[in-house]
Design a protein around this nucleic acid. Structure first.
Length: 443
DNA sequence: CTAATCTTT
DNA sequence: CGGGAAAGATTAG
């Protein structure tokens, strides 16, 4: 039946057990650290509230947009001071809005809007990333809920603790000092265990190379300069700086640019990312697609195929129907076209990661010595908890198992490019350091 | 550019 | 007062 049975039987069915085990597993959280940061942010909010009251000349509930509107527009009458600017707006009622754009415009006129803006920012950080996690906790641990069928691309999604969205946050502390919060460092392994993370490097770009058969792209991955990182390399080329000088942010930007271009970003959007004019941006796109000629051929082929059959297919047979692919409306049609292209690559990457999870899981289940446990999946990254004494041994099996997915006999997958997995370990999820291949170290 | 979750308005 | 939609933040590629 449409070749979907194989996908269901060999992948999704097997994954259910894996996800169930992940949901059952307890991820320990450093409750004290969490409490400390919550208190820290709480104090900051209190401070800002006081400042706001002082600036307003009265007490009011800072979180209430109604009360804020009263202070801003009826007491201070700030709208009268900015008639030259376009009226902020009021849609539903005749009221003035207190939305972010309005406050931005008002912040030169009075100290209050700025304080409110900072208050809202800190408040959001606190409620999402600190109190949000705290409310999901039972005793001293959390477990995410994993949704197997919640995305169009075949990726997994996680609910409750927003495990996939945690990041570092900076905000101004007392005067000059800047406080940085690392929500990921709140997550800690059990006593005597270590976190081990395995990442498929540049997985979507490698898949694009395989799918498009672009010679330049293939060369990038097939040549044995395995030491080089593609995005760092491109960043160094574009910025004209040696690769050792490439910062994390440069690499991150290069990555964004590459994916933006191959997924069909317009010149306006790209000029924003690159910080150049739209003309320069479209020139950039042209020269990029000129160098990697087959990429454009691949997107066109994908769109054509989608027009013909109404859906696109990932490398392991997952489908996405795109009924709007033949729409009259330009906006709707081109969006479907970009979605078609994106699905083939992103969906294939999702397939690969799911297979990796199953392989490792069954390997662990049948091992009499290895005790590692799969904790989470963040798209192309698998996070494990490993007994301290087994880190080296498990790391080696993990890496080779994942990289061996270049060929998956059962699903007819034979990638034209090798897969590369990078490993990192740490005593908290927030402080992982790369684990280098022990073989290349010792020789 | 695509995919997602979560909070605010 | 609450539900829902849209906007805007983040993450991943």
């Amino acid at each position: 039946m449409q070749g979907l049975w194989q996908l269901f039987y060999n992948m999704e069915l097997g994954l259910m057990t894996v996800l169930a085990a992940m949901e059952n597993h307890r991820i320990h959280v450093d409750k004290d650290a969490l409490k400390r940061t919550s208190d820290l942010l709480g104090t900051k909010l209190k401070q800002l509230e006081q400042e706001a009251h002082k600036a307003a000349g009265q007490q009011f509930l800072v979180t209430s947009s109604n009360q804020l509107r009263l202070v801003l527009f009826e007491k201070l009458r700030l709208q009268e001071l900015c008639e030259n600017k376009k009226l902020p707006k009021t849609v539903l009622k005749q009221h003035h809005s207190t939305s972010e754009v309005v406050l931005m415009q008002l912040q030169d006129l009075h100290p209050l809007p700025k304080i409110i803006l900072e208050y809202r920012q800190v408040h959001k950080i606190k409620s999402t990333y600190v109190d949000g996690i705290m409310s999901c906790m039972k005793k001293s641990y959390i477990s995410s809920t994993w949704n197997q069928t919640g995305t169009v691309s075949g990726r997994l999604s996680a609910k409750h603790p927003v495990i996939m969205h945690l990041r570092s946050l900076h905000f101004s502390g007392k005067e000059p000092e800047v406080v940085t919060i690392h929500p990921r460092s709140m997550f800690i392994p059990a006593e005597g265990w270590t976190f081990l993370a395995a990442d498929f490097s540049q997985v979507e770009l490698r898949l694009l190379a395989h799918l498009s058969l672009d010679p330049e792209l293939l060369k990038l991955f097939q040549e044995p300069k395995t030491t080089a990182d593609v995005f760092s390399m491109l960043a160094s080329q574009w910025k004209g700086i040696p690769e050792t000088e490439v910062k994390h942010a440069d690499r991150e930007q290069a990555k964004r640019i590459v994916y933006s271009v191959v997924y069909g970003a317009g010149k306006e959007r790209l000029s924003e990312i690159l910080g150049i004019t739209a003309d320069q941006a479209s020139q950039f796109v042209e020269s990029f697609l000129q160098k990697y000629k087959q990429v454009r051929a691949f997107t066109q082929k994908t769109i054509q195929q989608c027009q013909k059959q109404g859906y696109v297919v990932s490398i392991m047979g997952r489908r996405r129907p795109l009924p709007h692919i033949g729409a009259q409306d330009y906006t709707i049609r081109t969006q479907a076209e970009r979605q078609a292209v994106n699905f083939v690559v992103q969906g294939s990457a999702a397939d690969l990661c799911k297979i990796a999870m199953i392989r490792i899981f069954t390997l662990l289940a049948s091992s009499s010595t290895l005790t590692a446990r799969l904790i989470a999946q963040i798209h192309d990254e698998l996070l494990f908890e490993v007994e301290d004494s087994q880190v080296e041994e498990f790391a080696a099996v993990l890496k080779s198992t994942m990289e061996s997915l270049q060929h998956v006999e059962a699903l007819g997958v034979h990638l034209k490019v090798p897969l590369k997995v990078t490993l990192s370990t740490g005593k908290s999820w927030g402080s992982m350091t790369e684990l280098l291949d022990s073989r290349s170290c010792s020789h």
